[in-house]
């Protein structure tokens, strides 16, 4: 068996670092890990996705359609964009933040009766795929930790709250300290803790989280 995580977001949100921290935590835990990473054409603001697969049984760098145990979306619309990768009834950790793409804003300017695609709309559609959805205000959590750029580590915390993740949260924290820029370690570890708490709160009814001390 493999534990498959599909991670997506917008270019600039730090998916590469998030992936690297998870991979290092796997290495520390003696687990095989393989990824398929897609950065897109533009350096920022485009859609970005990572297939993260943990376990001896994970062969392909790509998760089969409908195969991911968890979908992590650092931006709300992106959760919907890749929903087919999630198992029916799988778990979604999604940001409440929406970054409206320029093409959508251009549409509103052209036709003032048009409306943005809303968070509520994204969440309600995702919920038609699975009931287990945690919507996390990661930007607020990151700011609370002292660094608005730490949305990615907030989600590492969210993931680490899950009992199904075959990694000891202590190992993930160790990996975070190794990959984030020096001087931001403390802020990132704080963001991690906040993320872990927020996911536990959001998912407390489902029995999928570790017991937090």
């Amino acid at each position: 068996m493999s534990f498959d995580i599909f991670i997506c977001g917008v270019g600039g949100q730090g998916l590469v670092l998030l992936t690297n921290a998870l991979g290092r935590a796997c290495l520390k835990s003696g687990l095989k890990a393989i990824t398929g990473e897609m950065y897109g054409l533009s350096q920022r603001s485009g859609t970005v996705s990572v297939h993260m697969r943990i376990g001896e049984d994970a062969h392909s760098p790509l998760i089969p359609i409908g195969g991911a145990d968890v979908l992590v979306a650092l931006e709300a619309i992106e959760a919907l964009r890749y929903i087919e990768y999630l198992k029916k009834g799988g778990l979604v950790l999604m940001n409440s933040r929406i970054m409206h793409p320029p093409v959508e804003t251009a549409g509103l300017v052209k036709d003032r009766s048009r409306k943005y695609f809303t968070l509520e709309e994204a969440v309600s559609r995702v919920k038609r795929w699975t009931s287990m959805v945690a919507v996390i205000d990661a930007l607020a959590a990151a700011k609370e930790g002292g660094n608005p750029n730490a949305e990615n580590t907030v989600f590492l915390g969210c993931l680490s709250a899950l009992r199904g993740l075959p990694l000891d949260p202590a190992k993930v924290k160790e990996a975070i300290s190794e990959v984030v820029p020096r001087g931001t370690v403390e802020q990132n570890l704080k963001a991690f803790e906040i993320g872990m708490r927020r996911a536990s709160e959001a998912l407390c009814g489902y029995g999928v989280c570790r017991d937090l001390k």
Binding site: S45, I65, G66, I77, L80, R81, P101, G107, W129
Partner: peptide, 25 residues
Amino acid sequence: DKSGIIEEAKALKEGMPERYPTFCP
């Protein structure tokens, strides 16, 4: 094959904005 599941996902995405590669801020 996965065409059924892909179709189902496609229906959910109707009206969802595209995110094309673009210039950075």
